[in-house]
Simulated assay, not measured.
Amino acid sequence: MPATDPQSTPVLKHPEHIDEFLLYRLHNLARLATQGVGLMFRRELGISRRDWRILAFVGKYPDASLTRLAELAALDMVVASRCVANMVKKGLIAKTRLPENKRVTVLALTEAGRIAYEQARLSGQRYNTEFAACLSDEEAVLLDALLKRMELQAAQLTQREIARSGPLPLLSEDVE
């Protein structure tokens, strides 16, 4: 017989209203957290969250093309291009052509970009530490394992939906 006690029915598995849906709650959590870190980046470093993301991926994958960077950073190509152009103008990213293939342009951090990247990395690390401070060490380890499991499940469900429907064009709300 199914449980009738509301406390025994996991709301995340059986939501009744959108504000109980796991995806909505995760979205809301991410929105709140990224808003806070974005304000910190603007105040402390004069860069946006998206700038930080671009700096982080160019720092990690130097000599990536714009197409590869957009893919790595999970950004729409137009958004990535506009962001990179702005960061080139600010002197944080340099564009160079490959000597062996002049048609290919690759990206790298400038010296100012490396300094901004390191400052943003340290600020982001500090913010992340403060954000996770509400968890015990055991809870943090458990949450990490749960997030990995949920990421795998989300990837599998997405692949299933692509197989059923085909990939859909991105909506404006999907583009960051």
Rank of each mutant, 00 (worst) to 15 (best):
S136P: 02
R121I: 08
F131E: 12
D76S: 10
L69V: 05
V88P: 01
D76T: 07
S81F: 01
L122Y: 12
L92A: 13
D137Q: 11
E130S: 06
G113W: 06
T129C: 11
R82D: 15
A73L: 11
V78I: 05
A73P: 07
E138I: 03
L98D: 05
T129E: 08
L66E: 03
R103N: 01
V79Y: 04
K102D: 02
E71I: 15
A132S: 06
A80M: 07
R68H: 07
E100G: 15
S123I: 12
A70F: 14
K89F: 12
D137Y: 15
A133I: 11
L92T: 07
V84W: 01
D63V: 01
A85I: 09
T105L: 02
T67Y: 11
R126T: 08
F131A: 15
C134Y: 03
R114H: 08
G113D: 07
K89S: 10
L135M: 06
L135N: 01
Y127K: 08
K102Q: 03
Y117Q: 13
E71G: 15
R68F: 15
E138C: 05
M87K: 09
N86D: 11
R68K: 05
L75H: 05
V104L: 02
A80C: 12
L72S: 09
V104E: 00
L92V: 09
E111A: 10
S123W: 06
V79F: 03
L72A: 12
R68N: 03
A80T: 08
L107T: 01
V78H: 12
A70Q: 11
K102H: 02
E111K: 02
Q125A: 13
V84Y: 02
Y117C: 12
V104N: 00
A94N: 14
K89N: 09
M77C: 07
R97V: 02
L107I: 03
V78A: 14
